[in-house]
Simulated scan of single mutants.
Amino acid sequence: MKITPLNIPDILIIEPKLFEDDRGVFFESFNLEAFRDATKLNVEFVQENHSISHKNVLRGLHYQMPPYAQGKLVRVIQGEVFDVAVDIRRSSPTFGQHVSQILSAQNKKQMWIPEGFAHGFFVTSIFAEVIYKATNYYDCKHEKSILWNDPDLNIKWNIFDKPILSLKDQNAHFFSELIL
């Protein structure tokens, strides 16, 4: 397993070791002991979510307030997404900054996003299946959304058509109205 920190060092890209031969490819998509050894994080995943979305769907930027804040390990099993994490930790030196990464079934990269970040993705392929493990349970009363195109965040989504958004994401708050 290869671990690469992004510009916000708490966000990690995890690449599995691939075993390829004339039959195809084998890899461990997740091993808790290896994850803990490689990242030095003692996390416990309690829920796994599976999202299937069409091209131009944008989901996010979502987060949950304490005590239901979630860390997420995000992986794409079909297609490709442009994945984004925004630091919403007020005491952090990178507060309000974001990182992005292309995650795809082809590159097999996973992104670790700890608690204290808003998360979203934009589907760049015909469709995409995204699976993510979460360190806390979903609770609708503690879920919040930040507007995906908030000018204060200045995220370069590389979107050429109008994205397809849920009603919740259309009505998301500006970053300046952050609720924690």
Score class of each variant (00 low, 15 high):
residue 1 M to Q: 05
residue 3 I to P: 03
residue 7 N to R: 09
residue 7 N to H: 13
residue 8 I to P: 02
residue 11 I to D: 07
residue 12 L to Q: 06
residue 13 I to T: 13
residue 14 I to D: 07
residue 14 I to P: 02
residue 16 P to D: 14
residue 16 P to V: 07
residue 17 K to N: 12
residue 17 K to P: 00
residue 17 K to F: 02
residue 17 K to D: 08
residue 18 L to T: 13
residue 18 L to A: 01
residue 19 F to P: 01
residue 20 E to G: 03
residue 20 E to M: 08
residue 21 D to G: 06
residue 21 D to T: 04
residue 22 D to M: 10
residue 23 R to V: 01
residue 28 E to F: 07
residue 29 S to F: 09
residue 29 S to D: 05
residue 30 F to W: 05
residue 30 F to S: 02
residue 32 L to C: 04
residue 33 E to N: 13
residue 33 E to R: 15
residue 34 A to K: 12
residue 37 D to E: 15
residue 39 T to Y: 09
residue 40 K to H: 15
residue 40 K to C: 13
residue 42 N to S: 14
residue 42 N to V: 01
residue 43 V to E: 11
residue 44 E to C: 08
residue 45 F to Y: 02
residue 46 V to W: 12
residue 47 Q to F: 06
residue 47 Q to Y: 03
residue 48 E to R: 01
residue 50 H to W: 06
residue 51 S to H: 04
residue 51 S to G: 00
residue 52 I to L: 14
residue 53 S to Y: 06
residue 53 S to V: 06
residue 57 V to W: 10
residue 58 L to N: 03
residue 59 R to G: 08
residue 61 L to N: 10
residue 61 L to R: 07
residue 62 H to E: 05
residue 63 Y to R: 06
residue 65 M to D: 08
residue 66 P to A: 14
residue 66 P to Q: 14
residue 69 A to P: 00
residue 72 K to H: 06
residue 72 K to Y: 00
residue 73 L to Y: 10
residue 74 V to C: 08
residue 76 V to Q: 10
residue 77 I to P: 06
residue 77 I to L: 10
residue 80 E to N: 07
residue 84 V to L: 05
residue 84 V to I: 10
residue 87 D to Y: 01
residue 88 I to V: 10
residue 89 R to E: 02
residue 89 R to H: 01
residue 90 R to I: 11
residue 91 S to T: 10
residue 92 S to I: 01
residue 92 S to D: 05
residue 93 P to S: 14
residue 94 T to S: 10
residue 95 F to Y: 14
residue 95 F to C: 02
residue 96 G to E: 02
residue 96 G to S: 15
residue 99 V to M: 07
residue 99 V to I: 14
residue 100 S to D: 08
residue 101 Q to P: 06
residue 102 I to M: 11
residue 102 I to G: 11
residue 104 S to H: 05
residue 106 Q to R: 15
residue 107 N to R: 08
residue 107 N to K: 00
residue 110 Q to I: 06
residue 111 M to K: 04
residue 111 M to V: 13
residue 111 M to N: 10
residue 112 W to M: 11
residue 113 I to R: 09
residue 114 P to H: 09
residue 116 G to V: 09
residue 117 F to W: 01
residue 117 F to Q: 08
residue 118 A to M: 06
residue 120 G to A: 01
residue 123 V to G: 05
residue 124 T to N: 05
residue 125 S to K: 08
residue 126 I to N: 14
residue 126 I to F: 04
residue 127 F to Q: 14
residue 130 V to Y: 07
residue 130 V to N: 03
residue 132 Y to N: 05
residue 133 K to I: 04
residue 136 N to G: 15
residue 138 Y to R: 12
residue 140 C to F: 09
residue 141 K to R: 13
residue 141 K to D: 12
residue 142 H to G: 03
residue 142 H to A: 08
residue 143 E to H: 11
residue 145 S to G: 12
residue 147 L to P: 03
residue 147 L to F: 15
residue 150 D to E: 01
residue 150 D to T: 07
residue 152 D to A: 11
residue 159 I to H: 00
residue 164 I to G: 12
residue 165 L to H: 09
residue 166 S to H: 00
residue 170 Q to S: 09
residue 172 A to D: 03
residue 173 H to Y: 13
residue 174 F to P: 01
residue 175 F to D: 11
residue 175 F to I: 10
residue 175 F to L: 13
residue 176 S to L: 09
residue 179 I to E: 14
residue 179 I to M: 12
